[in-house]
Structures are given as structure tokens and as C-alpha cells.
Simulated assay, not measured.
Amino acid sequence: MQRRDGGFRSTWAKVGEPPPAVTLFAVVPRRWVVERTFAWLGRCRRRSKDYEYLRACSESAIYLTMAMLLVRRLARSAR
């Protein structure tokens, strides 16, 4: 997998050639969705730090956190 900047960051230009143009910022489509989800997970005390040793435990904690969010939203909308 190649980087968005073409892999030119932190590389030396050849002698006599100008350095390659590298964009410092590239908009990633719908990245805000992922960032928002990580923020929701970070609000849960258990998910705020990476305490889990096994990947399966960490995945289960994420499912539990998202289920708690869903139930809380359903209860709020049912009022």
C-alpha cells in the first residue's frame, strides 16, 4: 500500500534535482465518521485506555460500548 503523499516524505532528493512536491494536508473522504466513532468509544471509561491484552477482549469491549450507546439512544428517543 502506497502512502497518499507518494512516499516522498523523509527521503533525500538526488543531487542536482529539486525536492519532490509533497502536500502537507490531504482531505480523506468521510474521515469524520471514523473520528466521531472513536470519540464515542473514548467516552466509555473502559475504552479510554487500552487495558485489554487480547484482541478478542478488546473487540468485545467495543461491541459492548456500542450496544450501550445504542440502548441509551433508543431509551432517549422513546420518551
Rank of each mutant, 00 (worst) to 15 (best):
R47V: 02
L70V: 08
V33G: 01
M1E: 14
C57W: 00
A13R: 08
I62P: 00
F38K: 05
P29C: 03
V22H: 01
R9I: 09
L70T: 09
T11R: 13
I62T: 12
P29E: 01
R9L: 06
R76Q: 15
E59I: 04
F25A: 02
R4A: 15
R36H: 08
K14A: 13
T37Q: 12
C57H: 10
A75P: 03
R3W: 10
A75Q: 09
V15S: 10
P20D: 03
A75V: 14
R79K: 10
S58Y: 10
V27L: 14
T37P: 00
Y53M: 14
T37R: 10
E52W: 06
S60T: 15
Y53V: 15
R46L: 07
F8A: 11
R36Q: 11
W40T: 05
R76C: 14
V22S: 04
R45N: 08
F25L: 05
L74G: 02
G42A: 04
L41Q: 03
M1K: 12
A26R: 11
W32K: 06
R55G: 03
S58A: 12
M1P: 15
P18V: 07
G7I: 07
F25T: 08
A26P: 00
V71C: 08
S60H: 07
R55V: 15
G6K: 05
E17W: 07
G6L: 02
R73V: 14
F8P: 02
R72F: 05
R3H: 10
A26W: 06
R79W: 07
A39D: 04
A39V: 02
A56H: 04
T11D: 01
P19Q: 13
A78G: 12
Y63G: 12
S77R: 09
A13W: 01
A78K: 11
R46P: 00
L70H: 08
W12K: 15
L64H: 00
T65I: 01
P20L: 03
S10N: 13
V27E: 11
G42E: 01
A75I: 02
D5A: 06
P18Q: 07
R72C: 06
R43Y: 14
F38E: 02
S60Y: 03
R46M: 07
A13D: 07
F25I: 09
